[in-house]
Amino acid sequence: MNDSNAVTAETLVRASGITKTYRRGGESINVLSGLMLDVPRGDFLALMGPSGSGKSTLLNLIGGIDRATSGSIEFAGRRLEDMNESELARWRARHVGFIFQMHHLLPMLTAQDNVELPLLLTGFPGAERRRRAAAALKLVGLADRVKHKPAELSGGQEQRVGVARAIVTDPDILLCDEPTGDLDRKAGDAILDLLQALNGEHGKTIVMVTHDPHAAVRAKRTLYFDQGVLVTQAAM
């Protein structure tokens, strides 16, 4: 099954005939097979499926941190496979915000400094970087935790810093890989509330990989993967 007929708004991401093959121990493993997918601007899309079904791989391909074996991914009309590594890095810095399951904050930096990291690539002066980082932290409800280091924060707070880091450059799309996978229900709900607000109030396009149906229901629609192909979709 493919998703190309579901587009009703301006398409931000278009994946056409995506195949991804890994070689492991001399054996070729097809993770994605001829995938077709459109993600409209402003969408909140959940990707579900069993482990190894290809959903995280697709997220990596959309985010330009991995390359498809064949097929094409267009982002706002621009083909990612035509960009070299440096161009992809610049493109990610400008257009993509990543939210990881394990936060991956730098432990020796404060929340403020962690959020400022992507801004180091922008050329903004220091005062402007600090202002933007503070605004992002305020948006995620951590205005009173700017000087705290990750070890001094709860898991949920760490993930909110991760969200602030992802949105501080005002990217077009947020790619979330199991953003609540390492959190308890309450903290997870808070993150999902935040993602919904970013989607609903700030118009951010979000693609979220999750195993958790409770998380998936927060998305506008959910796609199910199995063995590298889309098997069904559900709109919320």
Binding site: I65, A89, R90, V96, G97, H104, L106, L117, L121
Partner: peptide, 16 residues
């Protein structure tokens, strides 16, 4: 390793 990968993911180039 993971942190450096994250830096790359958020836009740091290989040269950075």
């Amino acid at each position: 390793t993971a942190e450096l990968a994250v830096l790359k993911a958020i836009g740091f180039s290989a040269r950075n």
